[in-house]
Design a protein around this nucleic acid. Structure first.
Length: 279
DNA sequence: CGCACATCCTGTGTGC
DNA sequence: TGCACACAGGATGTGC
């Protein structure tokens, strides 16, 4: 569920908590969260380092350390938690009962940052540098960066024969868009998700670019009001359903033309769209 | 190279 | 009501 706007909101909220702080100790509670890296390797790279900055590209968040980086990917359910002190963490943590689920904890010189993902899809990894992380190095143009211009986007579209929906999900071309906002962008751009990427006329490419930019900006606004509350173990983004026009609205009337929203499978996942006004 | 498909997980929702 | 099972999601790896 966390796509670019959600991760951006997390990054902005995290900065004042961890920038300039030192990582005293890394506790790997569930080793699956660092797989295939070993917990000892993660500790060796991260412990004792100072966090210089919090960065984001696509759906990846990373901590720039004095030497090396820590990458975080939340996949579907991953989230961050914050504890002012070890005592407060111990009060809510309970490995045998109904306490807070924690996978990895970064004990800082002030406060503790927890990474939690009950489904264990999310990952915490360490790398010698940004360039040494293949996943980061392989990412395409960040959909919220200045470089994501209509002209660059049109070029990328021309270079792909894939259906628009699958094109938008390909992080190697444009990074940050997931299943939800790809559906939303295509709805706002009034384009059929099944159309080949290289079939778009210039005006259509510009329309889709504009739709992506506005959909992501609107979602970010939503994610920041209110901002994530890492102190609440159950925190999650609120009110996003209210801004959705196509995603998860199968059978419901299109907010533009009233025809029922359809759901089809593309690349093994659901696409929601209006077959009447998306052409 | 590009594409299709399986895989990893587990909470939630559906059907019987 | 209770149980079984399919499904959802992003990135990666495998096979064609």
């Amino acid at each position: 569920m966390p796509e670019l706007p959600e991760v951006e909101a997390v990054a902005r909220t995290l900065r004042p908590l961890v920038e300039r702080r030192k990582i005293r100790c890394v506790h790997v509670i569930h080793a699956i969260a660092t797989k295939p890296q070993s917990s000892s390797y993660v500790r060796r790279i991260a412990e004792g380092q100072r966090i210089q900055s919090v960065q984001r590209r696509g759906k990846y968040l990373w901590l720039q350390l004095t030497q090396g980086i820590v990458t975080l990917h939340f996949k579907l359910d991953g989230r961050l938690l914050w504890f002012p002190s070890a005592k407060e963490m111990a009060e809510v943590e309970n490995p045998h009962g109904s306490g807070v689920h924690l996978d990895v904890v970064f004990e800082l010189d002030k406060g503790l940052l927890g990474f939690a993902d009950r489904r264990h899809f999310g990952r915490v990894h360490v790398w010698a540098s940004e360039a040494a992380c293949p996943a980061l190095a392989g990412l395409g143009l960040d959909a919220m960066s200045r470089d994501f211009t209509a002209a660059r986007f049109a070029e990328l579209l021309e270079g792909s024969k894939r259906p628009l929906k699958e094109f938008l999900l390909d992080q190697k071309r444009v990074a940050g868009i997931g299943n939800i906002y790809s559906c939303e962008s295509l709805w706002h751009g009034r384009l059929d998700p099944r159309r080949r990427a290289d079939s778009l006329k210039s005006a259509e490419a510009h329309r889709l670019h504009k739709a992506i930019v506005s959909v992501l900006a609107r979602a970010l606004e939503c994610c920041l009001h209110p901002p994530p509350d890492f102190r609440d173990p159950e925190w999650w983004f609120q009110g996003l359903e209210d801004i959705l026009r196509a995603y998860d609205r199968e059978g419901k009337p299109c907010r533009r033309c009233g025809e029922p929203i359809r759901r089809i499978a593309q690349g093994g996942r659901s696409t929601y769209f209006c077959a009447y006004c998306q052409k």
